[in-house]
Design a protein around this nucleic acid. Structure first.
Lengths: 142, 142
DNA sequence: CCTTCTAGTTATCATATGATAACTATAGGA
DNA sequence: TCCTATAGTTATCATATGATAACTAGAAGG
């Protein structure tokens, strides 16, 4: 097995994934939020409710900077935070109704874009894609 | 075929790819170049020689900003530019010897990381991975 | 209670990045 | 030759991001 060839394919592939997700995302142009703030929203959307520390960890940001950017998101009315009942140092952060609507729109747009890319494929071909996603995720991108 | 399920898998998958490439990249910590400069180096490395406009296009930057960042890369001794013989408005940009060495180190590190993730897999399993990469790239991440 | 740890805040600074205007130089017609 | 388009440069400004220090408040254990 030629590992050089596999590596080359790997690099080309990840480049393609980055390009594709960028193309899908750029069509959205949320002028209300910065890229970093969007990353936070995306994480909160799929994992809510979350603590500030977990947002910081998962977005690879420092706690002070995460706190600052969350404040901006709250000021924009996109997030809410409630002090945790158990441990009053912690917070439960989630999307506001408005933030949820925003992210629903984003995910809807992404789904549309994906649909556009896979339209015309047969059920068997879609199944193949699904299996390929599963395979790569369990073997490499865990 | 449940498109909702496929979409969910797609989102999880691209998230995983981003996380994995980030983990691989962060072990490198090139403190000499900024993230944007690194993106430029990566593009130049795989496509050299390139024009400034193509760097700008492929990294989604404006021409003025690309020109500025290229100047910094040249000042750091990582890139070189030569005026094109055919069309003297254009430039042929490539990595310098030092820049090539840097990127060789980066790609070597990436390959090591990939090898670590696929070690212990059989030839048949590697073949499966290769086919899955090909499939997804032609169908979705073209 | 006292100490120490955890979770988060606030303020401040430096740098990276993005946007734009005004410019030079070359190419390619008409 | 003149006009226009292309390729790139330089300068300038605003904003986003990253790093750090000094802080508050609550938890947890002795």
């Amino acid at each position: 097995m030629d590992k050089q060839v596999l590596f080359r394919k790997f690099v080309d592939f990840t480049t393609g994934v980055h390009r594709t997700t960028h193309e899908i995302a750029k069509g959205i142009k949320l002028d209300a939020v910065t890229p970093v703030q969007y990353k936070m929203l995306e994480y909160i959307a799929v994992s809510q409710p979350v603590t500030l520390s977990s947002v910081a960890d998962c977005t690879h940001m420092s706690l002070p900077n995460t706190s600052r950017e969350l404040r901006k998101l709250i000021d924009k009315g996109l997030c809410e935070k409630v002090v945790d009942g158990e441990d009053r140092r912690k917070q439960r952060i989630r999307l506001s109704v408005q933030g949820q609507a925003l992210m629903n729109g984003v995910f809807g747009h992404m789904q549309t874009e994906l649909d556009r890319r896979i339209e015309g494929l047969s059920a068997a071909q879609l199944k193949e894609i699904e299996q390929a996603l599963d395979l790569l995720q369990t073997r490499i991108f865990k």
